[in-house]
């Protein structure tokens, strides 16, 4: 198990390999489809993003509303391939990693190799458990999007697995192959 602290440097990213189990501590930002569209529109217009994306991780999540006393409601990952059209632009702008579930496409992998970024899987459908590692949550942009607003989360020991790394490693492929080999 590796402990990682955000923001990430290129060296931090290069040290991570597909299959590594990690715990993430520090600040992470949230965004889903609608927020990604707005962020990329800003880049297209040459405007500033609502937060400094350098070295940051973006978590693909739309949490449920917090109950009184909770920092955040249930907060598991959403499916990442829907962000494939946007992720390369944000990686180019300095984003160092994504947290989501399910494989990301070849255009994202290319950007990850070129600009050094890493993709982590969180446990889909374990929203109540993951919420325990979120200590603070505040909306930093697009409040009108509700669950899809951009949030700044303070996380402690957020459990994840490196699934696609900056070297082209893909644990979705390797993990499956290892299991199939173990059958014969």
């Amino acid at each position: 198990m590796k402990v990682i602290t955000t923001p990430l440097s290129n060296t931090d990213v290069e040290d991570l390999r597909a299959g590594d189990t990690v715990k993430i501590t520090g600040i992470i930002y949230t965004a889903r489809d609608a927020a990604h569209k707005r962020l990329v529109d800003l880049l297209d217009q040459g405007k500033e993003l609502p937060f400094d994306i350098n070295g940051q991780l973006i978590y693909y999540v739309g949490p449920s509303p917090a109950k009184p006393g909770q920092a955040i409601g249930s907060a598991g990952p959403t499916t990442s391939y829907r962000m494939d059209p946007y992720a390369p632009r944000l990686i180019e702008a300095g984003q160092k990693g994504m947290i989501g579930k399910g494989e990301m496409g070849p255009e994202v992998v290319e950007a990850m190799k070129k600009h050094k970024a890493v993709y982590f899987a969180a446990v889909g459908g374990a929203g109540a458990l993951i919420a325990k590692s979120v200590k603070k949550s505040e909306i930093v942009a697009y409040e009108d999007l509700g669950a899809e607003a951009v949030r700044r989360l303070e996380v402690e020991d957020f459990p994840a697995v490196v699934v696609q790394d900056a070297h082209g490693g893909n644990f979705y492929v390797e993990g499956k192959e290892n299991f199939v080999k173990s059958l014969s």
Binding site: A121, V163, F171, G175, V180
Partner: peptide, 11 residues
């Protein structure tokens, strides 16, 4: 027997 496993990480 496909091998996708929990969360697709193999199993």
């Amino acid at each position: 027997r496909i091998g996708i496993g929990p969360q697709g990480l193999g199993g």
